[in-house]
Design a protein around this nucleic acid. Structure first.
Lengths: 158, 158
DNA sequence: ATAAAGTGGATAATTATTATCCGCGTTATA
DNA sequence: TATAACGCGGATAATAATTATCCACTTTAT
């Protein structure tokens, strides 16, 4: 039971897009290269972020991706949800039904507890936004962030 | 990202073992049958529960499994941990390293948040015990539980 | 001795996740 | 208006995780 690596990649991708000047756009391949992700699969992740309305895509020669929302309006949870989907961490496989020979389907003693646990988990993921991560990275890694900014200027298209 | 079905099966297995008279023991195959689980794989799950000191096994002709702890001392979390292992839901894949070209390995902006989220999730799983589930099942499904008790008396060995 | 149980290792089957490929639509620009 | 660089979506393959099976072994009641 492990979170998909796509969630982490997406978070950093969005962090990069957040450094992009307004109106500018960054090709998917450039991002995937910088993150060391497989280009084709990473494109799929970007699609999910587009579907979730977190980023927008621009087709054509000077196309690419950019943020759709402000950094303070993108919670880690939003990205998690976009990539992992809304299926819950736990779903009963109906063991109770067999054990007690019940008529009704789908009843399980664990459902409520698990739902509560998941809510609790999600609540924490809703606490932090891209804006707060951006601040954190700026404070802790200023020189490296400067270099990244430089790279973005080279790769972006307007 | 889904919890293993083995966790649910294990919870109900332990619930069954909890209805067992003291000193009695129940063969693994009987349990797996009642739960509709694959016998051989279910045996592996039982092994994990033994390793986690939640149940004990007795080899030999009149062998089987029984609880090692009292129902009120077995939290859902203990079972979850026994089956899923202690690896966390999230582990960084080092994307940040590539993005910022850092020297240090293993630093990730998400680690703290994810750790906190997971703790929060675990806390909820620690709230409920086998004892409380047993009570719940007794209140809601009394007649069916009676039948289960009957079945246990048939299958158990002392 | 034998049969019924658990143990541990090797291995296969299944499912989920990650990755690639290709043909298509869109758009800047030569 | 042709072309090249990009995103889009579907099909498919490769890899990894999970679930399942098999077998030789130990233990123990009868």
């Amino acid at each position: 039971m492990q979170m998909k690596t796509g969630v982490e990649q997406s978070v950093y991708a969005i962090l990069i897009l957040n450094m992009l000047p307004d109106k500018a756009v960054l090709p998917g391949e450039a991002i995937s290269q910088q993150l060391g992700a497989s280009p084709t699969y990473f494109q799929k992740l970007l699609r999910k972020l587009v579907s979730a309305n977190l980023i927008t895509s621009v087709p054509g020669v000077k196309g690419g991706f950019k943020l759709r929302k402000k950094a303070e309006d993108i919670r880690i949870y939003d990205i998690y949800l976009a990539i992992e989907g809304q299926q819950s961490l736990y779903s009963s496989s109906g063991v109770m039904h067999g054990m007690l020979d019940l008529e009704e389907e789908g009843c399980c003693l664990l459902t409520d507890l698990m739902q509560e646990a998941e809510s609790s988990w999600q609540t924490v993921l809703k606490r932090q936004t891209i804006a707060s991560l951006y601040e954190e990275i700026n404070v802790g890694y200023q020189p490296k962030v400067q270099l990244l900014q430089q790279w973005i200027k080279e790769k972006m298209v307007m």
